[in-house]
């Protein structure tokens, strides 16, 4: 595979940005109700109490912003976990992020009676963070933390929490009903005033991600070579795990478990730019929301007058695309 030069990567990044901007516009323009472009424009620039304008400002605009933020977080967190574990099949779920968030939401809904997504979003965030810390603790040995042991601990904790969650849901079918939409992965009806507080966590996580991109490049060559280049393995791993936990935990809290974005987007980014983490992170930050928004737009129109949750569309759209790309390209190295 030919690795593109810096100019090509930059050009590709601009192109990815333009695609994302186009999808942002389409996400506000297209919905299950036909609204004229002029009304959309007026809704944003000349707000009035017109019913269609309310639909734009209250429903389409928030879900577009949520799609942007969640897609970005999922894309970068997926790139981080794949770089950290040097595993092309890794996604944030293997650290227990989804399991922790889902279990916390199940407890909130089934035991504490929280029914409002805005209420159990914080439980999801806390659950993701606590479980990831637990996984880190379990995966740490006297010799330090090993990526393999951490991943194994993550898989085991996720299995235990998954069983506990299933048990809780079986005893309380009403709770299962209330969680169905969250489990499917959706960016609908997530008010922005609940999303804003999570943004500072995302900002910190993005800064950390780009800070560890260089050391992760070195670690891709092997721990010994990385140490020889002056990389502090333990610190890099901890910072990377903090970053991906904040990103994936926050995204899962907002939208529920949407798995394929974190898995697929870094692959696509790697095929475009080669094994350079900083570029992979930058591309993932743009391609993640693009995939999510494109899937969401499709989900609004394909089953008119109803909609399909974005998590389901992402799986249907993403999986064939990933397979097609994999068949056309050699699997990208880390």
């Amino acid at each position: 595979m030919t690795v593109p030069g810096r100019r090509s990567r930059l050009l590709g990044l601009v192109l990815a940005l333009l695609v994302l901007l186009a999808l942002l516009v389409l996400s506000v323009m297209i919905g299950s109700t036909a609204i004229a472009p002029s009304v959309v424009w007026d809704a944003l620039v000349h707000p009035s109490s017109d019913i269609d304008q309310f639909s734009i400002r209250d429903f389409r605009l928030p879900r577009t912003i949520v799609g942007l933020v969640v897609g970005m977080a999922l894309g970068v967190s997926g790139a981080l976990i794949q770089a950290l574990t040097r595993n092309l099949l890794a996604d944030p779920g293997i650290l227990g992020v989804h399991a922790g968030a889902s279990f916390a939401v199940t407890v909130a809904v089934g035991v504490l009676g929280v029914r409002d997504p805005q209420g159990y979003m914080w439980f999801a965030f806390a659950g993701a963070l606590v479980v990831t810390l637990m996984v880190l603790a379990l995966g740490s040995t006297r010799q330090g933390s090993s990526a393999v042991v951490v991943v194994l601990a993550g898989v085991c904790v996720a299995a235990v929490l998954g069983g506990a969650r299933e048990a809780l849901q079986l005893t309380d079918p009403d709770a299962f009903d209330a969680m169905r939409s969250w489990n499917a992965g959706s960016i609908v009806a997530r008010p922005l005033d609940v999303v804003w507080p999570i943004l500072p966590f995302f900002a910190v996580a993005l800064v950390l991600s780009f800070a560890v991109a260089g050391p992760l490049n070195a670690m891709a060559l092997g721990d010994d070579l990385a140490v020889a280049q002056g990389v502090h393995l333990g610190r890099t791993r901890v910072l990377a795990i903090i970053a991906l936990t904040l990103l994936a935990g926050g995204a899962t809290a907002i939208a529920g478990p949407i798995v394929l974005v974190g898995l697929m987007v870094p692959h696509v980014a790697r095929w475009i730019v080669g094994p350079h983490q900083r570029w992979i992170f930058a591309y993932s930050a743009l391609l993640g929301p693009s995939l999510l928004l494109a899937s969401d737009i499709l989900g609004r129109v394909v089953m008119h007058p109803g909609e399909i949750p974005v998590g389901i569309v992402t799986a249907f759209v993403g999986a064939p695309v990933l397979i097609a790309l994999a068949r056309r390209n050699k699997a990208s190295g880390l």
Partner: peptide, 12 residues
């Protein structure tokens, strides 16, 4: 059929 809130306007 679950209708999205943006179709509330159709009730006019």
């Amino acid at each position: 059929t679950a209708l999205p809130f943006e179709q509330l306007g159709d009730l006019s």
